[in-house]
Design a protein around this nucleic acid. Structure first.
Length: 589
RNA sequence: GGGGCGGUAGAUCAAUUGGUUAGAGCACCGGACUGUCGAUCCGGAGGUUGCGGGUUCGAUUCCCGUCCGCCUCGCCA
């Protein structure tokens, strides 16, 4: 086999005259009867090969090349004549005048041609992932992903972090997402759980005195996937000793600065901070997208002066009325606003009262009900002619926030109000430690049960649980949560109190987290950390909203790998080894 | 578990209120062509309309069930 000398994105005018050998896949072929052109593609790019009839043997071989054949060719780098350069290719100034070509592997006709010109459905892409990954776009994404991981490792190495691996076969813990279980053959009837995150291990590492830990690690959560969520995903996980929240945030901010600078040549300014309560109040979200306005404005007092039943009955039940002003939104049609009204129902809204502003007054929609307070509304909302006002009304403020929070994003997208080149970073801080779960009738951690309450709130832990804030922080970029973390509890007594108020009694805490409570008793340094979704970071850098695009081998919404056809039934023998018997129907595939 | 959209040639899509032999550009095969680069021109082959059932003289089209993919609610400490 000819030994390759260069890759397919390497050669330029300066290399003219060199004898070279290139190897790769046939991206395209153009047979002109006499001269034949082959676009040879490898991981890095494309170079045009030329075959002239004078090199009879090579010409004849080239004549048989088709899409995705694997070949290696020898030739001389020649300059393309005036007007024949291809400005679309970095290598477009030159071509290889080939004297030899060797077909290394004939390809069957591929199910699809891996270039951007041919559209392919995602199902086919996943089934033939090896071909899909050949597309320059996918190569670029995986290259970016590699670079991000490299920048992370270099950065944390400089900062004195150790990369330490933690187990995949773990103890199942209560709280949190559903665990993926792995039957333990050596202890029949018992199970390991795949880690939802290495949370406990990294805290243990701090107790061990490792000081600073980092890991790029796979995590598993057995919940239904979404466009930006997979059951199996990757975190940048880190933990630091003897630090406070600011230290962790500063460390991570600098990392993001470096990544955005090196990958996109974008400067990340000092990241502002916003308390959770303010984020919810102004944006109806704990991860507000600050690229556009449309803030939530409380109009409960004005709404209370109307006779509009929707408003008054919600207020009578202790609810609130908030509104957002959509600049220029009056141009939306009845059909469009009706569509939004239908859309918000999924978030618990009864409907979506709206009105438009015309001649300085409310007009259309619910105008006839709120006519008497028109001036107050216009003033409070700073509304102008041509605006649309959308109201969020409910007996529960959480519903109002959710509805308007989702709505402002939806409208911003629909009305094209988002500048795609803009990056709005934000630390959300001062989270409540817990929130009340009405369904389960108990307190649940907003973050996780190891998050430290702020010192000033320690006394309120039992007496005013809902008012306790935690030392937690989330990094938000353009309305998406990149990661979150906290300062941890490092005192066993505090940890025990938190477990207790989460409804994890002494015995259960002992059983499930005994090792952590023990570890905290044997000299635990104050510590804290954070975890980022690596996949989400790469999604932002590559400009995709599909997490499957940034994973080499993702799974479908059904949890299937269409290429390997996992999951699959297993032999009866395997089940026997594990002391398992199936009691449910087996899914056919 | 719920809601929505989709499944037709290798791939991407089309097919009138149910009506003749299910079409198109791309890919594939054959031919022509010595400067293309999404080459061009001529010709050809290629279909269990996801699967099962039903209504009908007749179903890609209507109904029921089921499988698969996507979006989403629930879920995601």
């Amino acid at each position: 086999m000819l030994k390759r000398t260069h890759h397919c994105a390497e050669l330029r005018s300066a290399d003219v005259g060199q004898d070279v050998v290139l190897a790769g896949w046939v991206n395209n072929y153009r047979d002109h009867g006499g001269v034949i052109f082959i676009d040879l593609r490898d991981r890095d790019g494309i170079t045009q090969l030329v075959f002239h009839p004078e090199s009879a043997e090579a010409h004849e071989a080239a004549d048989r090349l088709r899409h995705e054949d694997v070949a290696v060719a020898r030739g001389k780098v020649v300059s393309r004549e005036e007007g024949m350069a291809n400005p679309k290719l970095p290598t477009g100034e030159i071509e290889i005048d080939c004297t030899d070509v060797e077909l290394l592997n004939k390809a069957e006709t591929p199910p699809f041609v891996p270039d951007e010109a041919h559209k392919v459905g995602e199902e086919q892409r996943l089934r033939y992932r090896y071909i899909d990954l050949r597309r320059p776009r996918m190569m670029d994404i995986l290259r970016t992903r590699h670079r991000v991981a490299k920048i992370m490792r270099d950065y944390f190495d400089e900062q004195g972090f150790y990369e330490i691996e933690t187990p995949f076969l773990c103890r199942s813990t209560p709280e949190g997402a559903r665990d993926f279980l792995v039957p333990a053959r050596l202890q029949s009837g018992n199970f390991y759980a795949l880690p939802q995150s290495p949370q406990l291990f990294k805290q243990i590492l701090m107790v061990s005195g490792m000081d600073k830990y980092v890991q790029i690690v796979r995590c598993f959560r057995d919940e239904d996937p979404r466009a930006d969520r997979q059951a199996e995903f990757t975190q940048l996980d880190l933990e630091m000793s003897f630090v406070e929240a600011d230290d962790v945030m500063d460390t991570c901010e600098e990392l993001m600065r470096r990544i955005w600078n090196q990958v996109l040549d974008v400067e990340v300014p000092a990241v502002r901070r916003m308390p959770y309560a303010e984020a919810m109040d102004r944006f109806g979200s704990d991860r507000p997208d600050l690229r556009f306005e449309m803030e939530l404005v409380d109009v409960s007092d004005i709404a209370g002066q109307t006779e509009f039943k929707v408003f008054t009955s919600a207020l009578a039940e202790g609810g609130i009325v908030k509104a957002i002003r959509v600049p220029g939104g009056a141009k939306m049609s009845r059909k469009e606003t009706d569509g939004l009204a239908e859309w918000v129902k999924q978030f618990g809204a009864g409907g979506l009262p709206i009105t438009k502003i015309e001649g300085g007054k409310v007009s259309t929609g619910i105008a006839k009900f709120i006519e008497p307070v028109s001036d107050a509304i216009v003033e409070r909302m700073c509304a102008e002619d041509g605006d649309l006002i959308c109201f969020g009304v409910d007996a529960k403020s959480t519903v109002v926030h959710r509805v308007l929070g989702e709505l402002r994003v939806k409208i911003a997208q629909q009305l094209d109000m988002i500048d795609e080149g803009q990056w709005e970073w934000l630390w959300v801080v001062d989270f409540p430690m817990v929130e009340w779960d009405e369904g389960d009738r108990r307190w649940k951690s907003l973050h996780h049960p190891f998050t430290a309450p702020v010192d000033a709130d320690l006394d309120k832990l039992e007496s005013d649980t809902g008012a306790v804030n935690s030392k937690a922080y989330d990094l938000v970029l353009n309305g998406s949560e990149l990661g979150g973390g906290s300062i941890r509890i490092h005192r066993p007594d505090v940890q025990q109190r938190v477990f207790r108020l989460l409804g994890i009694d002494e015995q259960e805490a002992r059983m499930k987290f005994g090792f952590l409570l023990d570890a905290l008793r044997y000299g635990a340094p104050p510590h804290g950390g954070i975890a980022f979704g690596l996949d989400r970071i790469v999604m932002h850098l590559c400009g995709t909203d599909n997490i499957r695009d940034v994973m080499a081998f993702p799974k479908t919404q059904n949890g299937a790998d269409l290429m390997t056809e996992a999951p699959s039934p297993v032999d009866e023998r395997q089940l026997q080894d594990l002391s398992l018997r199936l009691i449910g129907p087996v899914t056919e595939s």
